[in-house]
């Protein structure tokens, strides 16, 4: 039953991480630049949910709608402040501008909400189902369902709608997209908006169980970066799988001695610290063998 519990917890955590990584990879594909503010957008989403919860007194699932609207606005703003003014400069410049934007968000949240960790309203209600020894909290179940719905919605947006096709075309080749009349700049700004909305949704989903504080951004950013690197730089399914792998390591690997009695004498090798070491060694091994990541396409220069 412990194994099932850990699996459930890992999926709930990984589902939220996947939203962060998806937003990250969408912006990466559209701009060929890394948005280092992605983790801070998660934090902003958490505090946004907290603010809406205090104002409206409604459950998180209802707050998701106004939160997504606000995050879309923040995404547009981020594009116009941190990307467009420097888009013709070397990609490093975008790194710096998005880092600066993230620091502004972090310190802004500190000034407005204070440094204390906070918990956001639950998505539906508090409580849980007890199934045998398995504890399925309403919150974690709702996190999985909402994250899955958002990922499916995103998939439909990209594959079944005109704007989705335009977004994909822009991400694949901006010059060709522009030559056939697609408003490339608007599509790039829209991608920032979608990326920010996904990060904001992740913030709402994560902040009930795991709280939110102004300094959380860096940790989420690191996880998104690693998920995307592991899954395949630029691969959307890869970002989701990468996020789930990270969550699985975080949740399940340290519990192996409790799951497999034969490993109990070696419990010292399965601490949280060692699980992080093993995760990063695994990433190195994968990247040595597949530099393009698990789902990335190998790219070679034409001779």
């Amino acid at each position: 039953m412990l194994a099932l519990q850990l699996l459930f917890n890992a999926i709930a955590l990984g589902a939220a991480y996947a939203l962060v990584a998806l937003g990250f990879v969408l912006i990466l594909n559209a701009t060929s630049a890394v948005n280092f503010a992605q983790g801070d957008l998660v934090m902003v989403g958490g505090f946004g949910a907290l603010a809406f919860g205090s104002l409206l007194g409604l459950p998180g699932i209802v707050l998701l709608v106004p939160l997504l609207v606000v995050m879309i606005g923040i995404g547009f703003l981020l594009a116009f402040v941190a990307y467009f003014p420097v888009r013709k400069r070397p990609p490093d410049t975008v790194f710096i501008t998005t880092i600066a934007a993230g620091i502004i968000m972090s310190n802004g949240a500190n000034a407005i909400f204070g440094p204390e960790p906070r918990a956001t309203p639950s998505l539906v209600s508090s409580g849980d189902w007890q199934i045998g020894g398995l504890v399925v909290s309403y919150q974690s179940a709702a996190v999985i369902i909402v994250a899955a719905a958002l990922i499916v919605g995103l998939h439909l947006l990209f594959t079944r709608t005109q704007i989705g096709r335009r977004l994909r075309a822009t991400a694949q080749d901006r010059d060709v997209a522009a030559s056939i009349g697609i408003p490339v700049n608007l599509m790039v700004a829209a991608t920032f908006a979608v990326g920010a909305a996904l990060a904001g949704a992740a913030g709402l989903l994560l902040s009930r169980n795991f709280f939110v504080s102004p300094t959380d951004g860096a940790n989420y950013m690191l996880k998104a970066y690693i998920a995307v690197t592991l899954g395949g730089w630029g691969s959307i399914p890869g970002a989701v799988i990468g996020a789930l792998i990270i969550a699985a390591f975080e949740v399940a690997f340290p519990a192996l001695p409790a799951l497999i009695p034969a490993l109990a004498p070696y419990a010292e090798a399965f601490t949280q610290v060692w699980s992080t070491v093993v995760l990063y060694v695994l990433i190195l091994l994968i990247l040595w063998q597949r530099p393009q990541g698990l789902f990335g396409e190998a790219v070679r220069a034409r001779p």
Binding site: L2, L6, Q272
Partner: peptide
């Protein structure tokens, strides 16, 4: 670290 289930189980 977010999920504490493993450490408590051990």
């Amino acid at each position: 670290q977010k999920d504490m289930t493993a450490v408590l189980a051990k």
